[in-house]
């Protein structure tokens, strides 16, 4: 499962909608085993960048290399095969509302593994236990709380032992304990499965607690301002805007 080297390399990327450019001139690489955090003020294009990385929004210009091969230039079938190795947790969980939690997890498992129905059911129970939702297998998304939906979404994302996990604000809307638990889970997944993790987050505790590399996107200049370890961004980054952001506005 685990591999070494550069997982994702981004070169001269420009993202946006129609004629509107949200971010341009993005250059960075994500190494295997990184917990890569994307930070920046509201509306700076973090989620759009994430969607380009995991294959939902085609970038306007530039390239995303996935293990050295151009992700968006590849034929659709090849891109879909790569996407099977990704796990994605959407902002609100994005569980399929007409299915129970177990069915939500079973659907991708049924598509991509040769497991029997009973084995799939066991796997669903296992990942639900991981996120503290054991016993909720037969609940529908509408019957559980927002935080629980998010954790169930995480269970679905990790069920296929993905190589790269993409999180869109994983801890937003979670209570401090669940949020801490989620951080621990992310770390554990990274250590045990060797997954690479890319996440958009505002949670300072997560950024400094588990992030190994951080990318700061600026909403005004529409480009990246800093790239490095989270602590370096906070303490030594030459750009005062980045330091201020990571200190919640207190100058350092």
């Amino acid at each position: 499962m685990s591999s070494t080297g550069t997982q994702i390399e981004v070169r001269g990327l420009e993202i946006g909608y129609g004629d509107f450019s949200v971010q341009h001139g993005l250059d960075f690489s994500i190494e295997s085993g990184d917990i890569f955090v994307i930070i920046g003020g509201s509306g700076c294009g973090k989620s759009t960048l994430l969607r380009a990385l995991f294959g939902l929004t085609r970038p306007k210009r530039g390239s995303i290399l996935y293990r050295g091969e151009d992700f968006w230039e590849a034929p659709t079938a090849q891109r879909q095969r790569w996407m099977q190795r990704f796990g994605v947790l959407f902002q609100a969980g994005a569980l399929w509302s007409s299915m129970t939690l177990a069915e939500n997890i079973a659907l991708p498992l049924g598509e991509y593994t040769d497991l029997s129905k009973a084995e799939i059911r066991d796997r669903a129970s296992w990942v639900l236990s991981l996120v503290g939702l054991a016993g909720f297998e037969d609940f529908r998304p509408a019957e559980i709380s927002g935080g629980m939906r998010k954790r169930a979404g995480l269970a679905r994302a990790v069920a296929l032992d993905p190589e790269i996990l993409f999180f869109d604000e994983p801890s937003a809307g979670l209570d401090p304990l669940s949020s801490k638990r989620l951080d621990e889970l992310i770390l554990l997944l990274q250590e045990t499965l060797g997954s690479t993790i890319v996440m958009v987050t505002h949670e300072l505790a997560s950024i400094f607690g588990i992030g190994t590399k951080a990318l700061f996107l600026d909403a005004e200049s529409h480009t990246q301002l800093a790239l490095g370890s989270p602590a370096w961004l906070r303490d030594e980054c030459p750009d005062p805007k980045v330091r201020t952001f990571l200190r919640r506005g207190e100058n350092g």
Binding site: G55, L56, Q84, F90, L95, W96, S97, L107, E111
Partner: peptide, 17 residues
């Protein structure tokens, strides 16, 4: 429409369905 709003359709696409 509700599934689109809730990113459920995006989730299907990312799972290659």
């Amino acid at each position: 429409g509700a599934m689109t709003a809730n990113e459920e359709i995006d989730a299907l696409s990312t799972f290659g369905i």
